[in-house]
Design a binder for these strands. Structure first.
Lengths: 341, 341
DNA sequence: TTATAGGATGGTAGCGATACCAAGAGAATG
DNA sequence: CATTCTCTTGGTATCGCTACCATCCTATAA
């Protein structure tokens, strides 16, 4: 190939070329492509023919610059890997696509500084909207968002002071509800395993919810019943074993995050601990896995795809002209009682 | 609907504003931002100060149009939900990001027609490169790619006639190797459960691999030992039960796709079928889950993140000027023998 | 028939950056 | 001291499209 990396290939057909070959003005081509109804049948046919003949692809970059309008939404998630986010991303992607928008995705790895850099980068790309799976932001981010005025959806938690629109559930309420549920089932010594609390308001809220429920149940708040563990099968297993060693009377354990519960369940199978006979296990988030494991696992169903869908819908509506009003949607959650408790 | 959706907010600072406030020309600002080394220390400081003062964010859309260069890579996966792809996506995203590129993602839902529409849309956005998790394309797609000359990575299979660059493993070889492995372990009646074959060359290749291995093993090729199932726990369970009902002598089953094996394993636990005593179970793709299940599950390790990483690296190199040559990387696979076989 | 509205077209001027070339200022050379 | 070279800086012309306004034509009303 050539010296300079060229990426527009040989076929560099532009609108004016199509116009010339169709015997119309560039404006007519532009209109025929974007608002066909404003163009006469005859013109439209001429344009369509030329477009097809040359395989013309309008340059959306130029279009965006000229119209000051973009059709790309930016999304920042803590981790793309995590299947919970994946569900949400898929839902967002689907809604955007059916409305002619595209999705630019980035992952912050749970770091606030990274979020800052990514928000800047996405805004520099002039995305027309943002979805942030995170509700605690640096001042920089808040300023940027305020200054540019892009519509923003926050997700993953229900913040006290939202940037703009929010679609989420309450981590506090969810954790409290599950803990209370365990109490109602008669469990008295309930362990709590959480994802790392640092830089993660969601984990923090869940922990508060756990303690709030204990209080309501009239159970002692024993900090040594709380363990912090990075998400993962092995970590869940490990956490359960440690809890049982230090608290032989443990009769239930609530794993507030990602596959921890399943790891623990497998460990019980390995050690021959009956679930829920020896220890009951409850999880957070309705992974498919939990419904099929043996025994099936009690969990909190968070409607991740609904979150994605509604986020995208709100964004699209706003972009299509809906008034700029604060919206706060609590999608709620549901306790799914299964065999493990 | 308000009159005009504006998305550039109040703060609409452009390079010329920064230039004026810094007392330099726009070109100097542009250079100070992109190639600071070509600008004198003094100028750079003036520019930086002004940039910070106004919180200026360069407009990459304008930049791209002007330079005919974009820093966005397009990615099309069959499903964002699927955690296998998620691993790859994350790896791609990471590499791109450290090189200053962004990722636009779309999912085709396994439909070729959708791929076509998405490729067009991404090319209209003037992405500087494409990653396609699919190696069978419509003529339209092949033409588009050829005409625009964008660098393309294909992934997910090793095609006979690649579009451009390929990073993958051989589904045929992988399935053959696993089937042969089961044969070597002494299993004689080996079932095969595959994902839907329609529009999916990867599944098709796996099936061929299975039959090729049977032949090498001198085992009869019995089509009734092959079942097609959509991915999922329940589907895997169901498939195994049906196979065992129709073939009581079944001593092993190879699940060539997505969580099918785990679903089957759970079913065995429910029915009290010993694994591998009653039936051995082998899977495809090294989901974390398989390493932790009880029993642990024999599987094929496909280096999904390596695929993502190397894809992105190839793309970045090409974009940074590497010569345009066909590259075909076979990342291989590995049989992971565990307790289930 | 003339006036007038309204829909369909086209011309022109940007959008906000970068490429390319010209020019000025020093530094280095003979 | 003149001359050449290099390093910075700035001016100008796009990039490919769309907004906006002017124009033209046809249809309807008076």
């Amino acid at each position: 190939m050539s010296d300079k990396p060229r990426r527009d290939g040989g076929a560099d057909i532009k609108m004016s070329d199509i116009a010339r070959h169709a015997g119309v003005s560039p404006m007519t081509v532009s209109r025929a492509l974007r608002e066909p109804s404003t163009v006469s049948e005859k013109m439209r046919r001429k344009v369509d023919a030329a477009v097809r003949e040359f395989g013309y692809l309008p340059n959306r970059i130029a279009g965006s610059l000229s119209s000051k309008r973009s059709n790309v939404v930016g999304l920042i998630v803590p981790s793309i890997r995590n299947s919970l986010y994946a569900n949400m991303v898929q839902a967002i992607s689907d809604v955007l696509r059916t409305n002619g928008f595209h999705l630019m995705i980035a992952n912050s790895g749970h770091h606030l500084e990274d979020e800052e850099a990514l928000v800047s980068a996405l805004l520099a790309q002039r995305v027309c909207g943002l979805v942030l799976h995170n509700t605690t932001h640096s001042k920089q981010v808040r300023d940027l968002v305020a200054k540019t005025g892009v519509p923003v959806i926050e997700t993953g938690n229900l913040p006290a002071e939202p940037l703009d629109m929010v679609v989420s559930y309450s981590n506090f309420e969810a954790a409290r509800a599950m803990t209370a549920h365990l109490g109602r089932l008669g469990y008295r010594k309930i362990g709590f395993v959480t994802l790392p609390l640092r830089d993660n308001d969601r984990s923090e809220e869940r922990r508060h919810g756990y303690f709030a429920a204990l209080k309501e149940l009239g159970l002692p708040a024993d900090p040594s019943l709380v363990l912090e563990a990075p998400g993962g099968f092995a970590e869940g297993a490990d956490a359960l074993v440690r809890l049982i060693q230090t608290h032989p009377g443990l009769d239930a354990c609530f794993f507030a995050g990602d596959v921890l519960a399943v790891g623990a369940l497998f460990e019980c199978q390995r050690r021959g601990w009956a679930v829920p006979g020896r220890v009951a296990i409850a999880s957070f988030d309705d992974l498919d896995l939990l419904r099929h494991a043996v025994p099936t696992v009690t969990t909190l169903r968070i409607p991740r795809d609904e979150i994605g869908r509604r986020s995208a819908e709100l964004l699209v509506n706003r972009l299509l002209g809906a008034p700029s009003e604060r919206v706060r949607i609590d999608v709620g959650f549901e306790i799914v009682q299964r065999e493990s408790t």
